[in-house]
Design a protein around this nucleic acid. Structure first.
Lengths: 199, 199
DNA sequence: GTCTATACTTCGATAGAC
DNA sequence: GTCTATCGAAGTATAGAC
């Protein structure tokens, strides 16, 4: 396992085709559909090329995760620059294909140790970024972050959007409008309470 | 596919062994580990017996889901009878193995139509029960259910517990204590606000 | 009800020619 | 870099003897 004989070539055209095919399979048919044969077929290539560019299927999947995380990060930066960053963050988090992607990753992570490790790394990294950004937003709006910590908001929004995306994937989205309305209301009231209690 | 020739026997000892083995595999090794060979091995039986008691693997899995749902329902009724039903509901929802079980089901549902159908049926059924129960609890406490609808609370608690269980499964539980504290605080304030605004 | 034996499929991965 | 050819493991499912 340690010594690998075959070549892996970086930044070649076919390699990129394979990664993109795998990413599409993940969203469209689920992680279970990412097999060497299906990925190659979707990319219009021969199955053996998968093993030319990646030593194992794990390597392919980890690469897909990296590229997906990079895209997500760009979207995050864009959201922060929007007029209403909270809304933009919310919308971004509830993006369907991205959330679907994450659901599949959760399943994969239960079977593949390397996927689990990569998932944890990316999740913590992204979470830290989100907390930092939300904390700054709260400070700008004069909210007491001891009463309403950024970590809590990020966690609640993340949980709601993730659960909603999962439920929608099999055709259920009851309750989320109500829940979101309640969260908004609660955040407003909390902010107002803090504002008045400081005066 | 429609006509099935072989026999399936109800309520036999080995059948129950197989269902229990499958359920343990689901929690311990993930849904992907539920194969005819592994289930039989875990049950100490021959692989072919799986196909004697269940026409297909889908049938086995659906049976596992049914028995799991039945257990869950019993736990729910028990939680409602507790001194602090809200807390009991929360604790029940965050039960690890049950939540883990659900995470695996989500993945399976993306691949197997019958699992998806069964999952939706059980989820809606359970959700309706929870809403009914929470609504009654809110009424007893004099909370205005127009401002704080039971559906929203059930959704938020469900999303938080599900996300927390998923994250914990791969070793992350940052933020949930904060989030839960904020939810508790928000619920209290909402209730208080309603109480005063009614007077 | 349970066993032996087996058909068929798909998977990950590799060897070696070109 | 890409192809033909191939292995061995594991999966679902069935036939038929006992």
């Amino acid at each position: 396992m340690v010594v690998k004989r075959r070549l892996g070539t970086e930044s070649a055209r076919n390699r990129q085709l394979l990664v993109e095919a795998a990413e599409r399979l993940m969203v469209e048919e689920g992680a279970a559909a990412i097999t060497s044969r299906k990925v190659a077929e979707k990319a219009g290539l021969k199955m053996q090329l998968v093993y030319y560019y990646f030593h194992t299927m794990d390597d392919l999947i980890v690469e897909v995760m990296r590229e997906h995380a990079a895209k997500r990060l760009k979207g995050f930066v864009r959201a922060l620059a929007a007029k209403d960053p909270f809304k933009a963050l919310w919308e971004m988090n509830r993006d369907r294909s991205s959330a679907n992607f994450n659901t599949e990753l959760l399943a994969l992570a239960n079977q593949r140790e390397r996927v689990r490790a990569e998932l944890v790394t990316r999740a913590c990294e992204f979470r830290a970024l989100q907390i930092e950004a939300v904390d700054r937003l709260l400070a700008e709006r004069g909210v007491d972050r001891e009463q309403v910590p950024a970590g809590a908001i990020v966690t609640i929004i993340g949980a709601l959007t993730r659960a909603m995306a999962q439920d929608r994937a099999y055709g259920v989205d009851d309750g989320y409008d109500e829940a979101v309305a309640l969260v908004h209301k609660a955040l407003e009231w909390l902010a107002a309470k803090e504002a008045t209690s400081q005066q």
